[in-house]
Amino acid sequence: MKEQLSALIDGEFDTHNADHLLIVAKSDGELRRAWNEYHMIGDVMRGDVVLHRNVAGRILEALDEEPTVIAPAMVKASRTDTKQPFFKKTAFWSVAASVTAVMFVGLMLLQQQKAEQTLVNPIEIAESMPSEYLAAHQTYAPNSAAYYIQSASYTEQR
């Protein structure tokens, strides 16, 4: 079955046995994992998706746990009231390094995310509404009869 999976990814799979496809698509166990692994390998080989979404999620989670905003202020404050030069303490450097690293990643994310507010020239959605929002709503909202017509406006654009 695993061979067939990789054959399927490579587009060589003999498709006349529908059961296999259904099983692959529905299974949650080992096959599914195998599928995901193969799939990811394929992505990496093609150079798609460098930063996997999960990684980004983990960074954001780490940022949440890390007192990013408070930490630099505290380091600054403690520096003024210690006699021994703070810079000589190795602990400072390791803390600072990790804070900087987290801040750097955080800054990158923030810059990427908020950038500048491109409000100068907003688009009226009445003129041009990207259909992907409608499609995503129809796909994930719990009660949507529009599920059936999705192919009309959605898939043809992909």
């Binding site: 990427q112 995310q113 908020k114 950038a115 500048e116 507010q117 491109t118 409000l119 020239n121 907003p122 688009i123 009226e124 959605i125 009445a126 509404m129 990207p130 929002y133 409608l134 995503a136 709503h137 994930y140 909202a141 719990p142 009660n143 949507s144």
Partner: peptide, 24 residues
């Protein structure tokens, strides 16, 4: 029975903001 989706994303560089209302 009725459902509403709210999409939120950061406005990135070069992205034009969308505003207004539409019925489909």
């Amino acid at each position: 029975i009725a459902s509403v989706s709210v999409f939120i994303e950061p406005l990135k560089k070069g992205m034009r903001a969308k505003t207004g209302h539409k019925v489909v």
